[in-house]
């Protein structure tokens, strides 16, 4: 796959060194090109890319609120349609909090109504913009500032909310998971999403150096470890047909992924074993 050199998210933004969210946006925009309008929910991405009077966005971009990326995108899409600009890509970028939690209703509405738009959830598995508070997408065992580990707690005690499957249940014609560490896989999915008539949903796993606690040079490595250990599975659902798009040659033990991050450092072997057991169960079903 030839990856365009042109960058539509300019450097100089305020993202942390090793920021995974901006890598995801850069890759997506390389596929979508300039004929695109982007919508952001409130969150890291919005804050770091648009400190007035500067902006990193080389394409038209709008942000209104935290919980309404799906709603704003709906309005943008119909306004473009009304102007005969149906060829313009409409893409929403929202974090996991803005998607799995506070933005779920607006997202559900937008998907159910069948707007022709792409919704990309950049999932760093907690509210990172405000300092690492748990979201519905925080995985089991992770320590966050609102699900901290302590004498009476091992951290987050609920499994991650499965948003892509919720989207699939809406009958969304194209649903996919992806990782910034597998750019070709992700970009192929963005391309398919853009070619889909109607809504498309991509759930993008995106390691966060600040929130996960690892060296800033290791973002891509962490994304790979998530997939290679079976902790994050790359798949797509095209018109209801489920297909795994990447199978690691040899699944690595989950502890390699957990031990590389500060947010899981506190876990006892017993909890790690539970996580391994859960991953094994899912992967066995999917023959990964």
């Amino acid at each position: 796959m030839k990856i365009p050199e042109e960058e539509l998210l300019a450097p100089g933004h305020r993202g942390c060194a090793g920021c995974g969210a901006t890598i995801g946006v850069r890759l997506a925009l390389k596929v979508l090109g300039r004929n695109t309008v982007a919508i952001s929910s409130t969150g890291c991405l919005e804050v770091i890319t648009t400190p007035y009077p500067e902006t990193s966005w080389e394409i038209p971009w709008i942000h209104v609120g935290f919980e309404n990326a799906g709603a704003v995108a709906s309005g943008v899409e119909r306004a473009l349609k009304a102007q005969g600009k149906e060829d313009v890509n409409v893409v929403a970028f929202a974090g996991d909090g803005g998607t799995a939690d506070i933005g779920m209703q607006a997202l559900s509405g937008a998907m159910e109504r069948g707007h022709n738009l792409i919704y990309i959830c950049y999932d760093n598995e907690a509210y990172m913009n405000t300092g690492i508070q748990r979201s519905g997408a925080t995985p089991y065992g992770a320590s966050t500032t609102t699900s901290p580990h302590g004498k009476e707690s091992f951290g987050e005690n609920k499994p991650k909310k499965n948003v892509p499957m919720i989207m699939a249940a809406h009958g969304v014609p194209y649903v996919a998971t992806a990782s910034i560490s597998y750019p070709e896989d992700f970009m192929q999915k963005v391309k398919k999403a853009a070619e889909t008539e109607g809504p498309a949903y991509i759930h993008l796993n995106q390691p966060c150096t600040t929130g996960w606690g690892y060296d800033t040079s290791k973002t891509i490595d962490l994304g790979r470890l998530a997939v290679e250990t079976g902790s994050w599975i790359l798949y797509e659902i095209v018109e209801g047909e489920f297909k795994v798009t990447y199978r690691p040659m040899q699944r690595k033990p989950v502890s390699e992924y957990l031990n590389a991050q500060k947010r899981f450092k506190h876990l006892e072997d017993e909890e790690k074993a539970k996580i391994q057991e859960y991953v094994d169960q899912v992967c066995t079903e999917l023959r990964i």
């Binding site: 609120g65 704003v72 473009l80 509405g109």
Partner: peptide
């Protein structure tokens, strides 16, 4: 657009007006 709440009707209105 028959939306799913008033928060969305106004949000979509802003998106459309912005466009």
């Amino acid at each position: 657009i028959m939306v799913e709440s008033e928060h969305t009707s106004m949000s979509a209105a802003i998106g459309a007006s912005g466009a």
